[in-house]
Amino acid sequence: MADDERRDPVVAQPGGTPDDAGAPARDEAATPRARLTGWSALASALHPRATRAQLLAGVLCAVLGFAVVVQMRQAGDSSLSDLRTDELVRLLDETSARADQLSREATDLQAERDQLESGSTSRQAALDAARRNAAMQGILSGRLPAVGPGVRVSLQDPNGSIRPVTMLNMLEELRNAGAEAIQVGDRRVTASSAFTGAPGAIQLDGETLKAPYVWLVIGDPDTIQTALEIPGGALAYVRNDGGTGDVTKVQDVEITALRDLPEPKYATPAPVPTS
């Protein structure tokens, strides 16, 4: 291959050896050094010689190697510090936009979670309230049996002279005193209860009551007793009618009589305003 490279000078000088010595004879005239090409040029360049060209190339290559290593370390060291300003700004923009988006998302999710949590608790609270409400309404309307402290009022009517209005007066007095559940005989007394009939044949909701009239009342026993026995009160009316009555406080009054309420035909619940 070295021969090929040197063909031109060799051809120009027939008989010349393919050695370095042959070429200079002609080339020396054009250039101060032998004009070598290809492998031989490489080979001659590889011979360490203290020529200016070799030293220069060495120095420049040293600079290049130094710079390459420095740059490699730099590029490996830091990916951000060698970025340009606009790139950094763009990067910052993107990052902050992404952060904004993520924090917005986080806020949304947190709100949703709070909503769900409070929704479940408020649902539970509403359920509890509804249950309490149902129990309360059941007791007040006579749908449910009730137990509690109260009084037992027994009205003796030996002459059959107690009037229905006296019974009504009694009922009003009890309600005023805070009675929560009332039973007369085996009938539950509710908001729609009515005393009708005549003395001696008093009807409660259309059913004739038999003397003695026994009232079972749940409520504050002291208040009810005081209210009934007050001068000019319900028991005074009973005595005026010719009957007698006595009130006994009972620790556990059991009201077991129930009342079936007809489904309201015309009234429907008004929509609850949502706040």
Partner: peptide, 24 residues
Amino acid sequence: MIAILGLAIGVVVGLLVQPTVPVE
């Protein structure tokens, strides 16, 4: 030859010195 030597020297010096490139 000297060029290759120079390249090697430059690499070695760069590895040994570990300079930081000025920001500019």
